[in-house]
Write a protein that binds this DNA or RNA. Structure first.
Lengths: 188, 188
DNA sequence: TGAACCTGGATGATGTGTCAACTATTCCCG
DNA sequence: CGGGAATAGTTGACACATCATCCAGGTTCA
């Protein structure tokens, strides 16, 4: 219908084919709803947000439980100012603590506190269960595989070449390397 | 790895299987990155946000180009206060206008302005092109089909039964009906 | 009629994400 | 060594989402 509404758009415009449109609309709504649901679940039955959780996962993922701010930014694909603000708020709530880096006067570490550790330990099982209920209990093995490879394709497209350049987020030293940080701890 | 880190979580916890984990991590990152990229693209080369765009699409989708606030909320699956705030901001920028509803003294309409119409007309082609470049150019027909059906499964799960009840967002009169609003105009 | 209740919507506080400066350190190279 | 560039991180302003609360206009029913 939009296509009828915008007949004057340059003739070169590639609108979506019907099946593409169906898939896209479904994806957009699903993704919005799923995010909302996961966030709400997390902050209702644990007392942290998905963002907190993501940060805490990165920290528990490191022996030593301390990570440099920019490394956090790179592995989460967040901008540095986002990390900075978020860590500040988490620090205020006692989930993490900042420490100066002795080897580099500019840098600082984000360190997991006991309270942070118990927060994520409490949150993780419920979150994993939610992901099961909302996603994996519904999908066949083939669909899981498809979801993974579709996501990887798109992600790779987004983080290589022009797209990555446009973003200029907190530039992974090697733009290709961002996808290789697998094998760590799950988000769920 | 998290599984090792939380061995004390109740034994009943269902962690994710390796393939599930891979798919889940890939999905989460892709989705975050894709959202960020679409938003940035939209606000760089048009002067509106994805949220603005979504609202404008709903408006152009209606002959008469006016929609009741709550109807907007229902079709976008947003909370009413989100709509209210967002419409207020859009009004301030001249993209829409509010009008009182004569038949129901409480209600009000959101009306598309000329400026709003030209904003979406300008934004839509570029957005569609971006979606092509970032998504559909990469996927086979089978993958498009898979993406659609996976998304629909999850979306349905999220909007029926207990999940929908938990949310109690702006209750579609018939909880089943929310998925039936197909056939309208694409988001892209 | 009027009291209890429901509905459509607005509002303010708070937490969060983004962008554009800004500071302080370190690096590089003459 | 010294000065410019790069790097690590912070800060403030603003847009946005959520929550709880409020309020005015309808509905129901005695």
């Amino acid at each position: 219908m939009m296509c009828q509404l915008f007949p004057y758009a340059e003739a070169v415009t590639r609108w979506l084919e019907p099946e593409q449109q169906r898939a896209w609309r479904a994806y957009v709504r699903m993704q919005g709803e799923l995010n909302a649901h996961l966030s709400r679940q997390m902050s209702v039955d644990s007392d942290i947000s998905m963002a907190d959780f993501a940060v805490l996962v990165q920290l528990t993922d490191t022996r030593d439980e301390r990570v440099r701010v920019l490394e956090l930014a790179r592995s989460l694909h967040w901008e540095k100012s986002r990390i900075s603000h978020h860590v500040a708020r988490m620090e205020k709530r006692g989930l993490v603590r900042r420490e100066n880096c002795s080897s580099d006067g500019r840098g600082s570490f984000v360190v997991l506190t006991d309270q942070g550790r118990s927060a994520i330990e409490e949150a993780a099982p419920a979150h994993a269960e939610t992901v099961h209920k909302l996603v994996f209990d519904l999908l066949t093995e083939a669909e899981v595989e498809a979801l993974g490879s579709i996501s990887e394709k798109i992600f790779t497209r987004l983080t290589t070449g022009e797209c990555a350049a446009v973003v200029a987020r907190c530039d992974a030293d090697d733009p290709m390397e961002v996808v290789s940080q697998e094998g760590g701890c799950p988000e769920a």
